[in-house]
Design a protein around this nucleic acid. Structure first.
Lengths: 336, 336
DNA sequence: GTGAAAGCGCTAACAA
DNA sequence: TTGTTAGCGCTTTCAC
């Protein structure tokens, strides 16, 4: 016994530690440690006994201590930039699913789309020594991410970043699906609504599909605000040659367009057809019923974890890019 | 020097630790520690110098080590049971806001509504030694929560649990607001859709408001599925005395009701008025435009953190209950 | 402001 | 299986 005379018997009731379990169970502390890690070297009977005693006296392993001692956390950090978005949720579920399978813990950092919390959130995960950081739809600067990745592996999900492992869904193919669908329905004036700041695969896909169909691409810049898309749609519909179909860069925008069409008493899809992107759950509701491109979010999350694992195993390998194929979900906003 | 001859100069590039910063900056490790904690006892110039050196050599504090040594985490655990729900998001933002102010860290556990992850998530937070656990809209059994709270303080948000600190919005008042609004519009056959399993303040409020107006309460049990609410509404509308207004227990259900009304070609609000509860963002869209009861989610989150803090300071005090007042947001689903 | 010493609760390596 | 010995990287205390 080195230093155990000071055990407090009353008042504050300190949390039991491993030594307490060992003493109570009549075994060595080493054995308790092994038992809790499901490590070999403990007979099944002893393990059961230890766990039972531990449970009885209310022992809980101290994560900080064990991670510190083992010099490994086996934990992945996940940063949510738009918690509340279905896409984020689905991707996260995929991450959770795969992390369970591969026995990784998850540490969740919640940032927001303003970018104000980005730095703090990243710092937090690094201080917790996560082995890799997964970003769900981040808007962080590529340079910043590349800098980060020199210390801790970074995997970007849903958005491709040069020099950073990325798992994305093919935006070009998705946009092409959308356009081809509309072209197939006979539309010729198909406008695209897209945010400005990013060289976008979706925009490229839209343009190429339009050209391939012998049509003229017409792109209007919007922000990520639903109302902004609504205003843009209203404006478009007042032009000389108004669109007969609007393909919005994302479902929020598309729903904004539907709002505008509702206001202007135009019928969907007869007067104007609408296609979105992301296939949010709300887009499936009967009132909205928006045709949309699905990104396979769950699978994206799963692959993200696999990618992180690969990166952890081979820190110096060249950047990984995994691209999934999108799927068009057809609803009443295009087919009456 | 005790043991520093083994510093690896090549290959793997170990993460720098405090000693490295101290040596590089020409100060004691103690001082570095103080500097990083913004503790008194370091001149401003020295602090700057230390932080700068640390930054230069890429030092990051090890959270596990510091928490272990200091024997305190100053961290609150937050469990999300329905990430993706606006209500959850808003409550979380409130928690984040107040945690920042009070200088608490946040550790997020993500469970789901099935309850399968509940135990793991809680274990995780306890192993990380969070000082209290905040639950956002949990459906966990009260007995289980009371058991938990014997080890770690628990605060339940949006749902009142006996014997557990709870911060909620007055469900009875909310339901009364809804009913009074409908009564004021002249409705007399006002049906309520509510999930069965829980003695609910909303149901009580609905009943009492109905009785106060001299009307007969009519309650139909539903699940939390949107479609289930839709089916329930369809069924109700086929009855001998169909409702002229439906007050749903939550916005998802209310939106399901709107789906059903759309299908049956009934006009809203002329044929049937609809009121929901939670005021989700989607309910504000022009297409849906659902009148709904708002729970002050952000404020709820803030108060949750304050409550946790109070509980940590006084572990033995009797259970705290804080009740906020709801607000009715009137939209086109009741007022054409 | 400094430096030494002790220790947080655990894991790891090894001899018994 | 067991105990022992060493840390992990940090905070804390205290004499200087």
């Amino acid at each position: 016994m080195v230093c155990s005379l000071e055990t407090q018997e009353g008042s504050v009731a300190k949390r039991p530690i491993m030594d307490d379990v060992a003493r109570e169970a009549g075994v060595s502390r080493t054995l308790v440690s092994l038992a809790f890690r499901n490590a070999p070297g403990v007979s099944e009977a002893t393990r059961q006994h230890i766990l039972e005693v531990a449970n009885r006296i209310g022992y809980r392993r101290n994560m900080m201590a064990s991670q510190l001692a083992s010099l490994s956390t086996r934990t992945l950090g996940v940063i949510l930039f738009d918690m509340g978005n279905d896409l984020t949720t689905d991707v996260f579920r995929g991450i959770q699913d795969e992390a369970d399978k591969l026995d990784f813990g998850l540490l969740v950092g919640v940032s927001d789309s303003t970018g104000k919390r980005d730095k703090r959130t990243v710092e937090y995960l690094i201080e917790a020594r996560v082995e890799a950081i997964l970003l769900i739809s981040s808007a962080m600067a590529g340079s910043e991410l590349r800098a980060m990745s020199r210390t801790t592996p970074v995997v970007s999900l849903t958005r491709q970043v040069n020099g950073i492992d990325s798992v994305v869904c093919d935006g070009m193919a998705g946009a092409q699906l959308a356009v081809e669908h509309l072209v197939g329905l006979g539309h010729t004036r198909i406008d695209h609504l897209a945010p400005a700041w990013r060289p976008s695969h979706r925009v490229t896909g839209y343009e190429s599909a339009m050209r391939k169909a012998g049509l003229t691409p017409r792109i209007t810049e919007i922000t990520y605000e639903r109302d902004d898309a609504a205003r843009a749609a209203e404006w478009l519909l007042k032009q000389a040659e108004p669109p007969t179909a609007i393909f919005a860069n994302n479902d929020i925008a598309a729903q904004g367009v539907l709002d505008a069409l509702y206001e202007t008493r135009l019928r969907v899809p007869d007067d104007v057809a609408v296609v979105g992107y992301d296939n949010l759950r709300s887009s499936a509701s009967k009132l909205i019923s928006l045709t949309s491109v699905d990104q396979q979010a769950f699978r994206l999350g799963q692959l993200g974890v696999q990618t992180a694992q690969a990166r952890i195993a081979h820190p110096a390998a060249s950047p990984i890019l995994r691209v999934l194929s999108p799927e068009l979900v057809i609803r009443r906003s295009t087919v009456g």
